[in-house]
Every structure is written in C-alpha cells, then in structure tokens.
C-alpha cells in the first residue's frame, strides 16, 4: 500500500487525504472492536461458566426467581430501526456521490438513530422499574447495563456526529462527490456501531 504520492507537503499541515483518513478510521474502529470484544468476552466467560451453554441441560438464564426478562420483542423491532439507519446513511452517501445534497437521507438517519436511543432509554427505565439495575441480578444486571451502556454511548456519539455532518452540509454544502471524508468516516463509524449491536443483541437478548 505504499502510495508515495500521498506524502503531503506538511508545511501548511493540510488535512490528510480522504483515503488516509479512512485508513485511520479503520484502525480506530479495530481498537473499538477490541473494547467490545473485551466486554462481551468477559460476559461470555462469566455466563457460560455459571450456567453452561444454552443447549446444555439445566441451562437457565437469568438465574434465580423473579429476575425480570429482557424485552426481546421490543428490542428486535428497535434493531430494525438501527439496521435501517445504516442503509439510509448509505443512501445519503450515494446521493452525495451523485452531487445531490443527501440532506433528506441524513435527516432520516438521525431520526432512526434517535428512535433507537429513545427506545433503549425506555428499556433501561422499564427494567430499572422492574428491579433490574447495575447492582441487582448479579452478573446478569451488571453485564446488561455496562455493555448496553457502552454501546448506547457509541450510538449517541454517532447521532451527534451525523447531526454535525447534517449541519455542515446544510450550511456550507461542503460534501462533494470528490471530497467528503468526514461523511465517509462517520458512515464507517455508524456501520461499525450497527454491527457491534448485532453481537450485543445476539449474546445478551437471544441466547
């Protein structure tokens, strides 16, 4: 990947070329992936050494009576919003590539992302109401809130970044088919947050 042409004349410290910025973003996301791998891996170890694998007899999760179950149905619906938002973001990028503003798709993405955050907040509130919190339900509560908390924080940051892209595009029309690294990188981040969610969903809610 030696692309000597990219060596920039840093006298003026121009911003990194789009391809380089994208490469950097991917490196950053790799480390983000390891953060979630650590959290989910820890959860995996704790849970399976506690109650065995789902196909084993005697597997019961959460352990104990009266521990509220997670709202699996609601969350599945919510997942649709998040996954859809990845597509709408992609449409926004495609629109920009065709020299359109992409604002409408960005707006839809922001709405979908916000709905996801809203539903997750409701879920937290609801579970708290039912008696599940960081400090109840043992590892069950701990993992659920810490992992969805970390993920939720990433979604919130993502939504804010998309709002930032939206406002920039709205006021300065700065994204052109040739040059829109900020948009491309926020998109990468957003897809990443989406994929992580599928892991979180599978491990925390479905199995």
């Amino acid at each position: 990947m030696s692309s000597a042409a990219l060596t920039h004349d840093s006298n003026a410290h121009p911003s990194a070329p789009p391809a380089v910025a994208k490469f950097g973003m991917i490196m950053f996301l790799l480390s983000e992936g390891m953060l979630f791998a650590g959290l989910l891996g820890g959860y995996f170890v704790l849970r399976w050494s506690e109650v065995g694998f789902p196909w084993q007899t005697g597997h019961a999760w959460p352990r104990g009576e009266g521990v509220p179950a997670l709202p699996v149905f609601l969350t599945s619906i919510n997942t649709i919003f998040l996954v859809a938002s990845s597509f709408t973001f992609h449409f926004a990028e495609a629109a920009v590539a065709k020299r359109k503003s992409g604002l409408a798709w960005l707006f839809v993405t922001i709405v979908l992302g916000s709905i996801f955050v809203g539903v997750q907040c409701y879920e937290w509130w609801h579970l708290h109401h039912e008696g599940l919190w960081f400090n109840t339900g043992g590892v069950y509560g701990s993992s659920f809130f810490v992992i969805t908390g970390f993920h939720g924080l990433h979604v919130v940051i993502g939504v804010l970044l998309i709002v930032w892209c939206f406002l920039r595009q709205l006021f300065t029309k700065c994204f052109t088919p040739e040059y829109h690294p900020a948009l491309a990188n926020v998109a990468l981040y957003w897809h990443f947050v989406d994929v992580v969610w599928l892991f979180v969903l599978t491990l925390l809610y479905y199995v």
């Binding site: 992936g33 390891m34 650590g38 820890g42 704790l46 960081f134 590892v139 701990s142 810490v146």
Partner: peptide, 29 residues
C-alpha cells in the same frame, strides 16, 4: 489496550455502581 480499558471500566463499575463482574456473590469471578 482496549481490553485493559474494558477491564478498568468493569472494575470501576464494581467499585462504584455495585456491579458484580469480579464478585462471586453475584456470579462474577
């Protein structure tokens, strides 16, 4: 490094938010 960050976050939660990642009483290890 992110794995240490994850561990530090869990430790912080155990100390301050009553989680039980590392406490056998709550199923942690």
């Amino acid at each position: 490094v992110p794995v240490l960050s994850a561990a530090a976050a869990m430790l912080f939660a155990d100390l301050n938010m009553g989680t039980s990642f590392f406490s056998p009483a709550g199923g942690g290890q």
